[in-house]
């Protein structure tokens, strides 16, 4: 495609990081990239943006333009993707950053207190000191280990790891240790399983097997919903005090009017997409 890109160029660091992720450019003055070839390159968009950010801590306009040019993704589309995910930064920010989840699962297990303490020790969310900073984050997909923080150190090599059952001490310590890869969170198998509802199957079910999931009671609620019928389910949604992502889909209705059947309603949605990174997928919902 004939993208016309005018504007900033990537730095040498950014170019090297992106090339390492998607391969060096081939310019034999004879190659063209049509729609089919561009479609084959399209899946490299997230890894390329990731590589740029991992190296310098953010996705600069120059890096974004270079990724667009290399992958033949229109810049508006690349910008749309980069600005959609909370983990990508489109403005310069600290090279060491803690993304502290304050979404519903973590909130239920002390995320607010954790954020308050970080605020007191490191300054308000979004601030940075000496190349380190912290910010609030939507769900990181590790809800069963709540509260969770994802630590990223940009550089070559970049270091990244998630802290489960995070504390302010561990977060501050991990931010300071720029030469160490933060310890990835171990899979947590909660002892107080009896108190868990959504996350009760974490660590027990093989996430790649539907049969395993069903054998441990998966889809029981769906079956019940189908038995009761659409009207009854919509009534439940109307009277329930939904929170989190579900509430965004079914906001409580002041008018008391029930939700109507919509072909676009999806039944499983527990997490806002935040992380394009291959975060451990252990959510149980």
């Amino acid at each position: 495609m004939d993208l016309e890109l005018h504007g900033p160029e990537p730095t040498e660091d950014e170019r090297a990081a992106i090339d390492a992720a998607i391969g060096p450019p081939v310019d034999d003055a004879r190659s063209v990239v049509g729609v089919a070839e561009a479609a084959r390159r399209r899946p490299l968009l997230l890894p390329a943006l990731h590589a740029a950010q991992a190296r310098v801590g953010w996705v600069s306009p120059g890096a974004l333009a270079y990724v667009s040019r290399r992958l033949h993704v229109p810049p508006a589309e690349a910008y749309g993707v980069a600005s959609f995910y909370a983990l990508y930064a489109l403005h310069p920010r600290a090279r060491s950053i803690a993304h502290v989840c304050d979404d519903i699962g973590c909130k239920a297990r002390g995320a607010d207190a954790l954020c308050d303490e970080l605020g007191a020790r490191l300054g308000p969310a979004g601030s940075q000191h000496g190349g380190a900073g912290w910010m609030r984050s939507p769900c990181l997909g590790l809800c069963e280990q709540a509260p969770v923080a994802l630590i990223q150190h940009a550089g070559a090599p970049a270091r990244e790891g998630a802290l489960g059952e995070a504390t302010a001490d561990r977060i501050v310590q991990a931010l300071g240790e720029t030469e160490r890869t933060p310890e990835a969170a171990p899979a947590v198998v909660h002892q107080d399983r009896a108190n868990l509802t959504l996350l009760a199957r974490v660590g027990l079910v093989d996430p790649t097997s539907l049969d395993d999931y069903r054998a441990r009671g998966g889809y029981r609620v769906l079956r019940r919903a189908l038995d009761r019928g659409g009207a009854s389910v919509l009534h439940e949604l109307t009277v329930a005090k939904l929170a989190g992502a579900a509430a965004r889909r079914f906001p409580p209705r002041a008018s008391g009017r029930p939700w109507r059947r919509s072909p676009r309603v999806r039944t499983t949605s527990c997490a806002t997409p935040t992380s394009p990174s291959p975060a451990p997928s252990k959510t149980a919902c």
């Binding site: 004939d2 003055a29 004879r30 049509g34 089919a36």
Partner: peptide, 19 residues
């Protein structure tokens, strides 16, 4: 699929599967 026959790698050729 698009084939473009042109002495120049024109903006059109850049959309081609084969130039």
């Amino acid at each position: 699929r698009l084939v473009v026959v042109d002495p120049r790698r024109t903006p059109t050729a850049e959309w081609a599967d084969e130039w």
